Simulated assay, not measured.
Amino acid sequence: MIVVALISLLAVGIYAVEPKFLSAYSIDNILRMASIYGIVALGMTLVIITGGIDLSAGSMMALGAALGAGLLGTAFSAANPIQLASPLAILVALCVTGLIGMLNGVAVARFGIAPFVMTLGMMTAVRGLTFIFADFTVQAVPGSAITFSDPLFDWLGAESWGPLPTATVLFLGLALVISLTLRHTHFGRAIYAIGGDSETARLAGINIRAVIIGVYAIMGMLAALGGIVLAGRLSSVSPLMGVGYELDIITIVVVGGASLAGGRGTILGTVLAAILISMIDNGLNMLNVPSFYQYLVKGSVLLAAVIADQWYQRRRAAMLAIQAG
């Protein structure tokens, strides 16, 4: 695969300039960030395969993390009266963001609102909810971060399970489950069918609305889970967590081979692309590249992937036309 070749070339190239790039610490950091990006990108892969997009992913990460950490009731300067056990707090966070994802899906599938427009509005609304809940949790200076410590969060974000970070084990486990779902279940085949041709899918008896709503609900929950893992790594949740992550996540999915036109994409491609983007981030940081140049690099990667996807779509359409003629 092209992504595997890019990973190899990038590793060799950066290692030649900065040998610490392949140190144990650096690899651990790459895997942790790849897992956080990747957990959210798994949901985005499903959305993009259906022909949709979700621009609220970064805001969902922040809201999920804020809910999970804030409901513990143990944050520094916490003033909210709610105090839940960490598994229950995480469950509530996943349910809330899953419900918001369902609202996105209902708007897209039931009312025909363009996914770009709906999720762009939801991105802002959810970010506002995050600020409101953070202020409710830490009733100090408006916009203050929720700083906390919890064993379960620490285990998810900062500790390891054997030789791998816990987050990486979680990411790979989720990737395996979703990959098997796409390959071997009616729901997975329906996702591809809707992205390929929604009218044909409808005529085949697929409940398009239910599938799309389900996909956006999964997207919401996985975004929150990625935010919770990031919160466990940082032991802090800023209301601005995840700002700009939409670009990274969409880049991962498209570089991994998914088509923005829908109907095409693989979980393996998303996993490998998450590692690639995390390597780019880590490598640029180790080389002390200014942040605005990093945006330029990642934006260029996304643009190149979109151009390649458009070329593939046109080539495929031309081949089908020749076969039909």
Results as ranks from 00 to 15, higher is better:
residue 233 R to N: 13
residue 123 M to L: 13
residue 294 Q to W: 07
residue 90 I to C: 06
residue 97 T to A: 12
residue 175 A to G: 09
residue 217 A to R: 07
residue 63 L to V: 10
residue 85 A to N: 11
residue 286 M to W: 08
residue 23 S to C: 06
residue 28 D to V: 04
residue 7 I to F: 05
residue 169 V to Q: 05
residue 182 L to E: 02
residue 18 E to S: 13
residue 31 L to A: 05
residue 124 T to F: 12
residue 273 A to V: 02
residue 18 E to Q: 15
residue 52 G to N: 15
residue 25 Y to Q: 09
residue 265 G to D: 08
residue 170 L to A: 05
residue 145 A to H: 05
residue 31 L to K: 06
residue 203 L to S: 00
residue 119 T to V: 14
residue 183 R to S: 03
residue 283 G to A: 08
residue 62 A to D: 08
residue 95 C to W: 14
residue 294 Q to K: 10
residue 70 G to Q: 09
residue 145 A to W: 08
residue 284 L to R: 06
residue 264 R to Y: 10
residue 68 G to I: 05
residue 92 V to R: 12
residue 13 G to K: 07
residue 213 I to Y: 01
residue 317 A to E: 15
residue 37 Y to C: 00
residue 187 F to G: 04
residue 92 V to P: 06
residue 27 I to F: 04
residue 11 A to V: 10
residue 47 V to L: 02
residue 40 V to T: 13
residue 27 I to N: 01
residue 150 D to K: 01
residue 156 L to V: 10
residue 317 A to N: 11
residue 159 E to I: 07
residue 228 I to Y: 00
residue 102 M to K: 08
residue 173 G to R: 07
residue 68 G to E: 02
residue 106 V to P: 04
residue 295 Y to L: 08
residue 197 D to C: 05
residue 92 V to M: 08
residue 195 G to N: 12
residue 237 V to Y: 09
residue 277 I to R: 01
residue 245 Y to P: 00
residue 54 D to R: 10
residue 54 D to Q: 07
residue 85 A to Y: 12
residue 90 I to Q: 09
residue 34 A to L: 13
residue 201 A to S: 07
residue 194 I to R: 01
residue 13 G to M: 12
residue 121 G to M: 11
residue 99 L to K: 06
residue 133 F to I: 11
residue 105 G to Q: 15
residue 285 N to V: 00
residue 232 G to H: 01
residue 236 S to I: 05
residue 46 L to W: 04
residue 54 D to C: 10
residue 91 L to P: 09
residue 116 F to T: 12
residue 132 I to S: 04
residue 83 Q to I: 11
residue 96 V to K: 12
residue 102 M to Y: 06
residue 261 A to P: 03
residue 290 P to A: 04
residue 122 M to L: 00
residue 1 M to I: 04
residue 87 P to I: 11
residue 286 M to G: 10
residue 174 L to K: 09
residue 8 S to I: 14
residue 22 L to R: 07
residue 187 F to Y: 12
residue 324 A to N: 13
residue 320 L to S: 00
residue 114 A to R: 09
residue 236 S to D: 01
residue 225 L to G: 01
residue 309 D to I: 15
residue 157 G to A: 13
residue 69 A to I: 02
residue 162 G to A: 08
residue 165 P to N: 01
residue 13 G to D: 10
residue 23 S to T: 08
residue 286 M to P: 02
residue 104 N to C: 03
residue 88 L to I: 13
residue 77 S to Y: 14
residue 216 Y to S: 08
residue 17 V to P: 04
residue 300 S to R: 03
residue 91 L to S: 11
residue 242 G to D: 10
residue 47 V to A: 06
residue 53 I to Q: 12
residue 116 F to C: 09
residue 278 S to W: 03
residue 272 L to R: 02
residue 162 G to S: 06
residue 280 I to Q: 01
residue 276 L to G: 02
residue 123 M to N: 14
residue 142 P to W: 04
residue 110 R to T: 15
residue 105 G to R: 10
residue 324 A to K: 12
residue 163 P to E: 03
